[in-house]
Protein backbone atom coordinates (compact mmCIF):
# COMPACT_ATOMS: atom_id res chain seq x y z
CA UNK A 1 0.00 0.00 0.00
CA UNK A 2 2.79 2.35 0.89
CA UNK A 3 4.58 1.51 -2.31
CA UNK A 4 1.36 2.24 -4.21
CA UNK A 5 1.14 5.69 -2.66
CA UNK A 6 4.81 6.35 -3.30
CA UNK A 7 4.47 5.54 -7.00
CA UNK A 8 1.22 7.48 -7.25
CA UNK A 9 2.81 10.52 -5.68
CA UNK A 10 5.79 10.30 -8.01
CA UNK A 11 3.52 9.98 -11.02
CA UNK A 12 1.32 12.92 -10.03
CA UNK A 13 4.38 15.01 -9.33
CA UNK A 14 5.65 14.17 -12.80
CA UNK A 15 2.33 15.09 -14.44
CA UNK A 16 2.27 18.41 -12.64
CA UNK A 17 5.60 19.34 -14.15
CA UNK A 18 4.05 18.90 -17.59
CA UNK A 19 0.67 20.60 -17.34
CA UNK A 20 0.88 21.32 -21.06
CA UNK A 21 0.26 17.66 -21.88
CA UNK A 22 -2.92 17.56 -19.85
CA UNK A 23 -4.20 20.79 -21.33
CA UNK A 24 -3.41 19.60 -24.83
CA UNK A 25 -5.39 16.42 -24.30
CA UNK A 26 -8.28 18.37 -22.85
CA UNK A 27 -8.13 20.73 -25.81
CA UNK A 28 -8.19 17.77 -28.17
CA UNK A 29 -11.28 16.40 -26.43
CA UNK A 30 -13.08 19.73 -26.67
CA UNK A 31 -12.10 20.26 -30.29
CA UNK A 32 -13.24 16.82 -31.39
CA UNK A 33 -16.60 17.35 -29.74
CA UNK A 34 -16.99 20.70 -31.44
CA UNK A 35 -16.05 19.22 -34.80
CA UNK A 36 -18.51 16.42 -34.21
CA UNK A 37 -21.30 18.96 -33.81
CA UNK A 38 -20.11 20.74 -36.92
CA UNK A 39 -20.16 17.49 -38.84
CA UNK A 40 -23.51 16.32 -37.51
CA UNK A 41 -25.33 19.61 -37.81
CA UNK A 42 -26.79 21.48 -34.85
CA UNK A 43 -30.46 20.54 -35.25
CA UNK A 44 -31.10 19.70 -31.65
CA UNK A 45 -33.50 16.76 -31.97
CA UNK A 46 -31.15 14.80 -34.16
CA UNK A 47 -28.04 15.85 -32.30
CA UNK A 48 -29.27 14.71 -28.90
CA UNK A 49 -29.77 11.20 -30.21
CA UNK A 50 -26.23 10.74 -31.38
CA UNK A 51 -24.65 13.23 -28.99
CA UNK A 52 -23.74 10.55 -26.49
CA UNK A 53 -21.96 8.55 -29.13
CA UNK A 54 -20.05 11.68 -30.14
CA UNK A 55 -19.06 12.38 -26.55
CA UNK A 56 -17.72 8.88 -26.04
CA UNK A 57 -15.85 8.85 -29.32
CA UNK A 58 -14.26 12.20 -28.45
CA UNK A 59 -13.20 10.79 -25.08
CA UNK A 60 -11.72 7.67 -26.69
CA UNK A 61 -9.99 9.66 -29.41
CA UNK A 62 -8.33 11.98 -26.91
CA UNK A 63 -7.24 9.28 -24.47
CA UNK A 64 -6.03 6.45 -26.65
CA UNK A 65 -3.18 8.09 -28.61
CA UNK A 66 -1.33 9.14 -25.47
CA UNK A 67 -1.14 5.65 -23.97
CA UNK A 68 2.04 4.80 -25.79
CA UNK A 69 4.02 7.19 -23.61
CA UNK A 70 2.65 5.99 -20.31
CA UNK A 71 5.88 4.32 -19.25
CA UNK A 72 8.22 6.39 -21.37
CA UNK A 73 9.95 8.12 -18.47
CA UNK A 74 10.37 4.94 -16.47
CA UNK A 75 11.56 2.86 -19.39
CA UNK A 76 13.98 5.35 -20.91
CA UNK A 77 15.59 6.30 -17.61
CA UNK A 78 16.12 2.67 -16.67
CA UNK A 79 13.92 3.04 -13.62
CA UNK A 80 11.80 0.15 -14.82
CA UNK A 81 14.84 -2.12 -14.51
CA UNK A 82 15.29 -0.95 -10.95
CA UNK A 83 11.70 -1.81 -10.19
CA UNK A 84 11.97 -5.24 -11.79
CA UNK A 85 15.09 -6.05 -9.81
CA UNK A 86 13.45 -4.98 -6.55
CA UNK A 87 11.19 -7.09 -4.36
CA UNK A 88 8.21 -4.83 -5.05
CA UNK A 89 5.31 -6.32 -7.07
CA UNK A 90 5.05 -4.72 -10.47
CA UNK A 91 1.26 -4.84 -10.56
CA UNK A 92 1.11 -2.32 -7.71
CA UNK A 93 3.19 0.06 -9.80
CA UNK A 94 0.85 -0.48 -12.75
CA UNK A 95 -2.18 0.24 -10.61
CA UNK A 96 -0.52 3.40 -9.32
CA UNK A 97 0.26 4.54 -12.87
CA UNK A 98 -3.34 3.89 -13.92
CA UNK A 99 -4.67 5.78 -10.91
CA UNK A 100 -2.29 8.66 -11.55
CA UNK A 101 -3.26 8.80 -15.20
CA UNK A 102 -6.93 8.77 -14.26
CA UNK A 103 -6.52 11.66 -11.84
CA UNK A 104 -4.43 13.75 -14.20
CA UNK A 105 -6.06 12.97 -17.54
CA UNK A 106 -9.55 11.55 -17.05
CA UNK A 107 -10.77 13.90 -14.35
CA UNK A 108 -10.28 17.03 -16.52
CA UNK A 109 -12.35 15.36 -19.25
CA UNK A 110 -15.09 14.61 -16.74
CA UNK A 111 -14.99 18.20 -15.54
CA UNK A 112 -15.39 19.42 -19.09
CA UNK A 113 -18.29 17.11 -19.86
CA UNK A 114 -21.09 19.40 -18.65
CA UNK A 115 -20.04 21.97 -21.24
CA UNK A 116 -19.74 19.26 -23.87
CA UNK A 117 -23.22 18.05 -23.01
CA UNK A 118 -24.57 21.53 -23.52
CA UNK A 119 -22.89 21.71 -26.93
CA UNK A 120 -24.36 18.35 -27.87
CA UNK A 121 -27.81 19.50 -26.69
CA UNK A 122 -27.96 16.75 -24.13
CA UNK A 123 -30.23 17.63 -21.18
CA UNK A 124 -28.15 18.44 -18.11
CA UNK A 125 -30.44 16.26 -16.05
CA UNK A 126 -28.43 13.43 -17.54
CA UNK A 127 -25.23 14.71 -15.96
CA UNK A 128 -25.09 12.16 -13.11
CA UNK A 129 -25.53 9.25 -15.49
CA UNK A 130 -23.03 10.65 -17.97
CA UNK A 131 -20.45 11.26 -15.25
CA UNK A 132 -20.97 7.81 -13.78
CA UNK A 133 -20.81 6.00 -17.10
CA UNK A 134 -17.97 8.06 -18.53
CA UNK A 135 -16.13 7.93 -15.23
CA UNK A 136 -16.29 4.15 -15.10
CA UNK A 137 -15.66 3.77 -18.81
CA UNK A 138 -12.52 5.91 -18.70
CA UNK A 139 -11.26 3.89 -15.74
CA UNK A 140 -11.64 0.70 -17.75
CA UNK A 141 -10.07 2.32 -20.79
CA UNK A 142 -7.03 3.46 -18.82
CA UNK A 143 -6.58 -0.03 -17.41
CA UNK A 144 -6.62 -1.39 -20.96
CA UNK A 145 -4.26 1.36 -22.01
CA UNK A 146 -1.84 0.37 -19.28
CA UNK A 147 -1.62 -3.07 -20.85
CA UNK A 148 -1.48 -1.70 -24.38
CA UNK A 149 1.37 0.62 -23.47
CA UNK A 150 3.33 -2.20 -21.86
CA UNK A 151 2.85 -4.52 -24.82
CA UNK A 152 4.02 -1.91 -27.30
CA UNK A 153 7.12 -0.70 -25.43
CA UNK A 154 9.83 -0.51 -28.02
CA UNK A 155 7.58 -1.20 -30.98
CA UNK A 156 7.55 0.80 -34.17
CA UNK A 157 4.48 3.08 -34.49
CA UNK A 158 3.73 2.49 -30.83
CA UNK A 159 0.84 4.94 -30.59
CA UNK A 160 -1.20 3.50 -33.43
CA UNK A 161 -0.34 -0.02 -32.39
CA UNK A 162 -1.46 0.57 -28.82
CA UNK A 163 -4.69 2.04 -30.17
CA UNK A 164 -5.33 -1.00 -32.40
CA UNK A 165 -4.88 -3.28 -29.41
CA UNK A 166 -6.95 -1.29 -26.94
CA UNK A 167 -9.95 -0.30 -29.04
CA UNK A 168 -11.40 -3.77 -29.77
CA UNK A 169 -11.00 -4.68 -26.12
CA UNK A 170 -12.84 -1.53 -25.09
CA UNK A 171 -16.00 -2.40 -27.05
CA UNK A 172 -17.91 -3.60 -23.94
CA UNK A 173 -17.06 -0.39 -22.07
CA UNK A 174 -18.29 1.72 -24.96
CA UNK A 175 -21.48 -0.29 -25.39
CA UNK A 176 -22.49 -0.36 -21.73
CA UNK A 177 -21.52 3.27 -21.22
CA UNK A 178 -23.41 4.71 -24.17
CA UNK A 179 -26.44 2.53 -23.51
CA UNK A 180 -26.60 3.84 -19.95
CA UNK A 181 -26.80 7.39 -21.24
CA UNK A 182 -29.31 6.51 -23.91
CA UNK A 183 -31.46 4.71 -21.36
CA UNK A 184 -31.48 7.85 -19.23
CA UNK A 185 -32.47 9.88 -22.31
CA UNK A 186 -35.43 7.63 -23.03
CA UNK A 187 -36.43 7.22 -19.40
CA UNK A 188 -35.54 3.54 -19.42
CA UNK A 189 -33.79 1.84 -16.50
CA UNK A 190 -30.17 2.89 -16.32
CA UNK A 191 -29.02 0.57 -13.55
CA UNK A 192 -28.50 -2.64 -15.58
CA UNK A 193 -26.08 -0.90 -17.94
CA UNK A 194 -24.14 0.75 -15.16
CA UNK A 195 -23.93 -2.52 -13.27
CA UNK A 196 -22.56 -4.30 -16.32
CA UNK A 197 -20.11 -1.48 -16.85
CA UNK A 198 -18.98 -1.66 -13.24
CA UNK A 199 -18.57 -5.42 -13.53
CA UNK A 200 -16.48 -5.04 -16.66
CA UNK A 201 -14.26 -2.44 -14.99
CA UNK A 202 -13.86 -4.68 -11.95
CA UNK A 203 -12.81 -7.54 -14.20
CA UNK A 204 -10.21 -5.31 -15.83
CA UNK A 205 -9.07 -4.03 -12.45
CA UNK A 206 -8.16 -7.56 -11.48
CA UNK A 207 -6.76 -8.81 -14.79
CA UNK A 208 -4.98 -5.82 -16.29
CA UNK A 209 -2.40 -5.02 -13.60
CA UNK A 210 -1.28 -8.64 -13.49
CA UNK A 211 -1.11 -9.00 -17.26
CA UNK A 212 0.63 -5.64 -17.53
CA UNK A 213 3.24 -6.57 -14.93
CA UNK A 214 3.97 -9.59 -17.02
CA UNK A 215 4.17 -7.53 -20.17
CA UNK A 216 6.58 -5.07 -18.53
CA UNK A 217 8.86 -7.89 -17.51
CA UNK A 218 8.76 -9.21 -21.04
CA UNK A 219 9.61 -5.79 -22.43
CA UNK A 220 12.63 -5.52 -20.12
CA UNK A 221 13.78 -9.03 -21.01
CA UNK A 222 14.13 -8.13 -24.62
CA UNK A 223 15.17 -4.58 -24.07
Amino acid sequence: MRFFLTCLAADLRASLTEPGDILAQLGFFIMITALFVLAAGPESDRLALIGLAGLWMAALASMVPAFERLYEAEARSGWLDQLLVSPQPVWVFVLAKAAGYYISHAVPLLLASPLMMIWLTLPLALLPVVLASLGLGLAGLILLGALGAALTLGARRGAILAAILVLPLSVPLLIFGVLAGQAALSQAPVAPHLQLLAAAVLFLLVLMPLATGFALRTAAENG
Binding site: A10, E18, A73, G78, W79
Partner: peptide, 12 residues
Protein backbone atom coordinates in the same frame (compact mmCIF):
# COMPACT_ATOMS: atom_id res chain seq x y z
CA UNK B 1 21.79 -3.21 -10.45
CA UNK B 2 23.48 -0.34 -12.22
CA UNK B 3 23.02 -0.44 -15.96
CA UNK B 4 23.93 2.04 -18.66
CA UNK B 5 20.82 4.02 -17.87
CA UNK B 6 20.86 5.93 -14.62
CA UNK B 7 17.58 4.65 -13.24
CA UNK B 8 16.66 8.15 -12.12
CA UNK B 9 13.24 9.57 -12.95
CA UNK B 10 13.81 12.85 -14.77
CA UNK B 11 11.00 14.85 -13.21
CA UNK B 12 12.02 14.18 -9.63
Amino acid sequence: WLGHATGLLPTL
